[in-house]
Design a protein around this nucleic acid. Sequence first.
DNA 1: CGTGTAAGGAATTCTGACACG
DNA 2: CGTGTAAGGAATTCTGACACG
Lengths: 108, 108
Amino acid sequence: MSDGKLSYKEKKVITIGIVSEITGLSQRQIRYYEERNLIFPERTERGTRKYSFSDIEILGDIADKIEEGVQTFEIRKDMIKKAKGKQTREDVNKMIRGQLNAHFNIRK
Amino acid sequence: MSDGKLSYKEKKVITIGIVSEITGLSQRQIRYYEERNLIFPERTERGTRKYSFSDIEILGDIADKIEEGVQTFEIRKDMIKKAKGKQTREDVNKMIRGQLNAHFNIRK
DNA sequence: CGTGTAAGGAATTCTGACACG
DNA sequence: CGTGTAAGGAATTCTGACACG
């Protein structure tokens, strides 16, 4: 299901040197944010990290937070919260649909 | 005008090793098609080639043509023809618009 | 905590050339 | 013509560690 064709934005194909150029972050910083579980590059067969455009956007967000003085641990918590928020919104939709169905099926 | 933000598809950020993995073509083949002016990677400061997803698609098309026995020179002519075709279509649109304007402005 | 850096090795990329056909 | 390959060098990436604070 989650296999096969991903959009260009999500495909992990960019090496760390180019990510560093684009983001302006050092390779050390980029690797450290991975160590802190903020980004998850894939690896080539022989271990070279590969990033997506999406990862580059996330790195930009991380850099902003860091500049604001937010610690990586906090950034991670926010990311988890947001991920859960998305999930919750979907669940809420399901619940609403469930309720509507229950409502309109009362007399059925 | 043609500066600044390009779509992810057009941005040249992928190194030849990864392009080779994705397309199944050898680095030799990829470099040769460049020599024949079929693709135009950019370069990093120190000379490493960088390709876009769009380049990868073009490489797929080239590979198909080569398999069919078409020579690189012919492939190049086709690409130029198609590029001109696009240009012509736009020009045609402009001409049509021009004619329409002329038509509706006759009595003005 | 977040990041710089020197260290040593392994993998990558580059170019020009010879080979086959 | 299109592609493989060996060649030598230069640039890239990786990890684990020490440093500062």
